[in-house]
Design a binder for these strands. Structure first.
Length: 521
DNA sequence: AACGCTGTTGCGTAG
DNA sequence: ACTACGCAACAGCGT
């Protein structure tokens, strides 16, 4: 008797530790491993501010295509294949169609906590239940089920990392199952199957950019990279996130496993399990929040808060987000986005983002602080949009969580601690190797001036072939002045006195304090 | 209700 | 290279 199952891949682009795949195989005569290409994610959008689609920059599109090629190849090694479908008019309706066309009994896919995924999956589950099709959607993207953690906490997400860790406990083990063969693919009938497209086939032609992300996608690459990381047990055991060097780029100071976790090429449960095995073989190791396991728990923390907080990705209507009157200034925003702020450290990071789709965590902090509370006082949502598009690891919950953090809108509130766009980079890379690589226009600027080229005498600028104001921009703001103004505005937004001499502010802050008290009672 | 403690990753200076 | 301190001072949480 025929029993057909669909494995719907979205994230979770892997064979290992894949409960949806595992369940689909059980008792099924045929399985249909499906991926739906979403044109909005893939096809060129000329109106976007960078090369890419409406949703993603070219680096992430390329990364996704790598993932699909690798997944298809792994499935083929097991006697199956990836069925790539055209996502017209949208992915959910395509899935509904094949459930009927292929006489499906079981639909299996990994649970997705993002609002976009939730809405999409609701459509499909509603349809499937009308047809009496069994839907299996396990939580396997994260270590824990965000809904369960929230329930354990009395219905509200924990708002501090420590309380989250205390609540979370031990994550489940990864599935140990390996396959030698999968059930065969069933008859697809008249449904049109696509090849996994190349970048050129998608319509990206005459690409001028000369440097692309050095990180390739796919489960095989993820597992290779993981193995490489785990080989150096001392490094794993002694890892402390805040101590990493953000200017290291040929040999990054972190694992660069985030893009693989984002697409689910690497199972977070398997990663966690491997880290614990290393910890067992070494005597001493670092601990959360700074350790590698700690990093995985940060991911869980943000997933949980994001899942339990309405309007998590915006300021308005977001209960945990400080309401701050950010400035609207498109000129400054574009200068930041395009790496033209005149601060080489900031601009080099933004160029690395554009070219590589990845930069070190602390580099992200530098530019996020600069855009928001540090210098430009521009809305964190604008910066979030740029990261979301360009990062190969951009992840809805984590990206928004970190922008809330860095802008002192939630989780972190010490707005006097501002990253200097000059000295922060210099303490890691006094010779400016990082800047020279990503901003070659400054490659001959002497070390003395590489972080502040506008202070170089004209003779030096000429000798370095880089005239400030012509070949490289002057600073868009004066940091010493800008960061003082930002602190003042932050103070006002927090309902405190911005400066002592302004009586109005004192009165205003007292009245908001009163209102606060009133609201609480 | 007021207070102390804590918080992944600031800067500049002194020793 | 490393640590300690002043700077000026935040919110959340627990007592």
């Amino acid at each position: 008797m025929e029993s057909n199952a669909v494995v719907w891949f979205r994230k979770g682009l892997r064979i290992h530790d894949n409960p949806a795949l595992d369940y689909a195989c059980r008792g099924s005569s045929h399985i249909f491993p499906v991926f739906v290409l979403d044109p909005r994610y893939l096809h060129p959008d000329p109106s976007a501010f960078s090369l890419g689609s409406a949703r993603a920059g070219l680096n992430r599109i390329r990364f996704l295509l790598d993932c699909l090629l690798d997944l298809d190849s792994s499935l083929r090694n097991l006697g199956s294949r990836l069925l790539v479908l055209k996502g017209h008019p949208e992915p959910a309706s395509v899935i509904c169609q094949i459930l009927k066309d292929w006489n499906i009994r079981k639909l299996c896919y990994e649970f997705d906590t993002e609002p976009y995924g939730q809405a999409r999956d609701r459509q499909v589950t509603d349809f499937a239940s009308q047809l009496g099709i069994e839907v299996f959607s396990p939580v396997s993207h994260t270590l824990f089920d965000p809904a369960e953690v929230i329930k354990k906490n009395g219905g509200r997400p924990p708002l501090t990392y420590q309380s989250f860790v205390a609540l979370a406990g031990k994550p489940p083990d990864p599935l140990a199952k390996t396959y030698s063969e999968l059930p065969p693919v069933g008859n697809v009938g008249n449904v049109e199957l696509l090849n996994i497209p190349t970048i050129e086939e998608l319509g990206y032609k005459d690409i001028e950019q000369e440097e692309f992300s050095p990180f390739g996608g796919g489960e095989s690459e993820a597992l290779r990279r993981l193995k490489e990381v785990l080989k150096d047990k001392e490094w794993v055991a002694n890892f402390e996130k805040p101590k990493g060097d953000p200017s290291a780029f040929w040999k990054p100071a972190t694992t660069v496993l985030s893009p693989y976790l984002k697409f689910g090429c690497l199972s977070s449960r398997y990663f966690y399990h491997c880290l614990h095995s290393v910890y067992l073989t070494v005597g001493k190791h670092t601990s959360p929040p700074v350790s590698l396991v700690g990093q995985l728990l940060w991911r869980e923390f943000f997933y949980t808060v994001a899942f339990g907080t309405p309007n998590f990705d915006q300021m308005r209507g977001n209960k945990i987000c400080k309401q701050i009157p950010w400035k609207d200034d498109d000129k400054l925003l574009v200068a930041w986005r395009e790496g033209r702020t005149g601060y080489p450290w900031i601009d080099a990071i933004m160029i690395q983002l554009k070219k590589w789709g990845w930069m070190h965590h602390l580099a992200r902090h530098s530019v996020a602080c600069f855009l928001t509370r540090g210098d430009l006082f521009i809305h964190w949502e604008k910066g979030r949009d740029v990261f979301e598009r360009l990062l190969i690891d951009s992840d809805w919950a984590i990206n928004n969580g970190n922008w809330l953090w860095l802008s002192c809108s939630a989780f972190f509130y010490q707005y006097h601690r501002i990253y200097s766009p000059i000295s922060f980079g210099r303490k890691y890379d006094p010779d400016g190797k990082y800047i020279r690589h990503f901003l070659p226009v400054l490659k001959d600027m002497p070390n003395e001036y590489i972080y502040e080229p506008w202070t170089a005498p004209l003779s030096i600028q000429k000798k370095a072939n880089c005239i400030i104001g012509k070949d490289y921009p002057r600073p868009v703001v004066v940091h010493d002045k800008a960061n003082k103004e930002c602190r003042k505005k932050m103070g006002e937004a927090y309902g405190k006195v911005g400066s002592v001499e302004e009586e109005d502010n004192v009165a205003a802050s007292e009245s908001t304090a009163k209102q606060k008290r009133k609201r609480r009672t």
